[in-house]
Nucleic acid binder design. Sequence first.
DNA 1: CGAGACGTTGATAGGACTCAAATGTGGTGG
DNA 2: CCACCACATTTGAGTCCTATCAACGTCTCG
Lengths: 276, 276
Amino acid sequence: MSSTFAITPALPGFRSARTACAPCWLNAQCLSEGLSDGENRLLARIISYRRLARDESLFCMEEPFANLFVVRFGQFKTFSLNLSGEQQVVGFQMTGDMMGMDAIGTQYHQSAAIALEDSEVCVLPFARLETLLAELPTLQRHFHRLMSHEINREQSAMLSLQSMRAEQRFAIFLLSLSARYAARGYSPSRFQLRMSRKDIGNYLGLTVESVSRVILRLNQKGWLRVVRREVEILDFVSVESLAKGLTRAEAIGSCRLQAEHHAALAMHFDLVSCLH
Amino acid sequence: MSSTFAITPALPGFRSARTACAPCWLNAQCLSEGLSDGENRLLARIISYRRLARDESLFCMEEPFANLFVVRFGQFKTFSLNLSGEQQVVGFQMTGDMMGMDAIGTQYHQSAAIALEDSEVCVLPFARLETLLAELPTLQRHFHRLMSHEINREQSAMLSLQSMRAEQRFAIFLLSLSARYAARGYSPSRFQLRMSRKDIGNYLGLTVESVSRVILRLNQKGWLRVVRREVEILDFVSVESLAKGLTRAEAIGSCRLQAEHHAALAMHFDLVSCLH
DNA sequence: CGAGACGTTGATAGGACTCAAATGTGGTGG
DNA sequence: CCACCACATTTGAGTCCTATCAACGTCTCG
């Protein structure tokens, strides 16, 4: 039932084994990154794990805040309620992504998280983590970095979507997923959408019908091959230029000057990696 | 040149004097909230201040990260670049709001900040602040709360805007400003817009023309009186129901039957908890 | 006063939503 | 195994909203 894309252990940033933490494949976002063995053991002491079946809820809105969570495997969607009381998808979390940080301020969860597939998370009791942060400067620095990234994720992705056309929004969404899969050792061009069209639409501010039609158009153009929830990106150049709001001709034109091309690519990946 | 709405010192959450920090009118977001005098002195030791004229830049994109900033008075806009390289307004900061947190992760500013009027900020050297956080648990807790709030700010406001009509977006924006002025002791119904229509449009994902037309319509309905950048909210009920996506009739109707009104309110909050 | 930025107003076209219906899909129980 | 249902997704037709383009008023500042 789950897809079977192979992990590529050769990618940098991956560790094949972990001494203290249970073995897992988290990326550089993992809190234990850069800790000594001793520090790692201290961290491991407060961590536990939890498995969730598909559609199971990890935490609910307004639930008292106790733990932060890091995805070990699987995927989640987080959502809150807008002013009208309707569900608003806030993000999709995959391996290494942290959830629950929006609850630190109020001590109550401001959003809910549901597993999109069978998943497992690290459970980090925040009170104990906070104590540990004061003792381990490396950990503290890493934690602040994580929160900062979370702030950037919202900013860069969400705000700019507003002024964009449906195709452009979807292109950005797809490339973001692609980059995140790539960063985790999966194929950037072939992957599965774990979320429904409805969730995608909700996240992007489009109706289900619009999402469906956008996919149809991009399929017809030959840039994508999307069958049900299987995605294959056939023409990265075109999809990227669409995301940037350029026509394909403009994108090709800008590629002619090598320097500009590399600058553009670097910018793209910098921005994308900020989206996690 | 700056507006002269009177501060209301009677509002709770305000302190009339500060022992260590230079006297200022920050709200509960201020980092020094709840610190003892001794702790406050430690914090004050690393703080300096900086004045900026209107249109002056506080920090630029890609500038190396060194300091966090808290607005003491005045207002700022922060903006980044979207994938197309165009300016994207990320937020408007007023007294007590912190800026620069998005740079912690990468050590380079991901956005730029410009003063919308003559302003002053607290300058917090992050390296020294981080050391202090480990020593002062109260300060640490407060800092994490601040970052968490920043994460929420993006989520709640921005994501839900996407699926909304122009009038609804503007209503939410206006009510958000109103609430923020109120929290700082200013009138919630009369205030000045410190940002241009262009910036508002950029922030809300609308064109200048649309912003102008929305304001015109709300003026004609008698809900607002907006003259240039002076705003007066005349009918809060209507504006709020617009923000919630209800017609005024629906809002009034739901108020008529007390039970129903409370049921509606309760439903809203139940949904929050019921949605798994 | 004049230049330029800012803001408003009008006409038009196109894109996305809405409503409606058909089709595909997975899960359940007989 | 199949019938059946609930749900997800697609497709179509029509309408409304907002972007676009263009022109004009207004304010600011040198």
